[in-house]
Amino acid sequence: SISSRVKSKRIQLGLNQAELAQKVGTTQQSIEQLENGKTKRPRFLPELASALGVSVDWLLN
């Protein structure tokens, strides 16, 4: 799922939720909701993929 991929990649990069949120241009709460499965397809998906160094396709599939 996107939530597990985001969380595992974030941890692999040594980032906390607030640091990832800053790179993406969103809030820590938005990252938390995404990782908890409350958000399925965030509006900041391209920025998120870029910050994590992955493709949008990788996040979604």
Rank of each mutant, 00 (worst) to 15 (best):
R43I: 12
L20G: 01
P42D: 03
N16I: 05
K7N: 05
F44T: 02
G25C: 09
Q12M: 11
L60I: 13
A18C: 11
G37Y: 05
I2G: 03
Q29T: 11
R41Y: 15
L52A: 00
Q17C: 10
K9C: 12
S8N: 12
L45C: 03
K40F: 15
Q33A: 15
L60H: 05
V6F: 02
N16G: 11
I11L: 14
S4L: 13
F44Q: 04
V24N: 02
S50H: 12
R43K: 14
T26W: 06
N36P: 02
A18W: 14
T27M: 05
T39S: 11
R5A: 08
A51Y: 06
N61F: 13
K7L: 08
A49F: 01
N61E: 10
N36W: 08
L34Q: 01
A18P: 05
I2T: 06
S30V: 13
A21F: 00
Q29F: 15
N36A: 14
A21S: 05
Q28C: 09
V24A: 10
G14D: 05
K40E: 13
G37Q: 05
A18V: 09
Q29C: 09
E19V: 06
L20Q: 01
L45Y: 05
T27F: 05
L15V: 05
G37V: 03
S30C: 15
V54L: 04
Q29I: 11
Q33N: 15
P46L: 14
E47Q: 14
T39V: 14
E32G: 06
I11G: 06
W58M: 03
N36H: 09
K23W: 08
N16V: 05
T39N: 13
P46K: 15
G53Y: 05
P46Q: 13
V24F: 03
I2V: 10
K9M: 15
E35D: 01
Q17K: 08
K7Y: 08
K9F: 05
R5V: 06
I2H: 03
T27L: 06
R43C: 11
S50A: 14
S8G: 09
G14S: 06
S3R: 08
L13G: 03
Q17D: 03
E47H: 09
N36D: 11
L13Q: 07
S50F: 14
A51F: 08
Q22P: 01
N61M: 11
S55I: 04
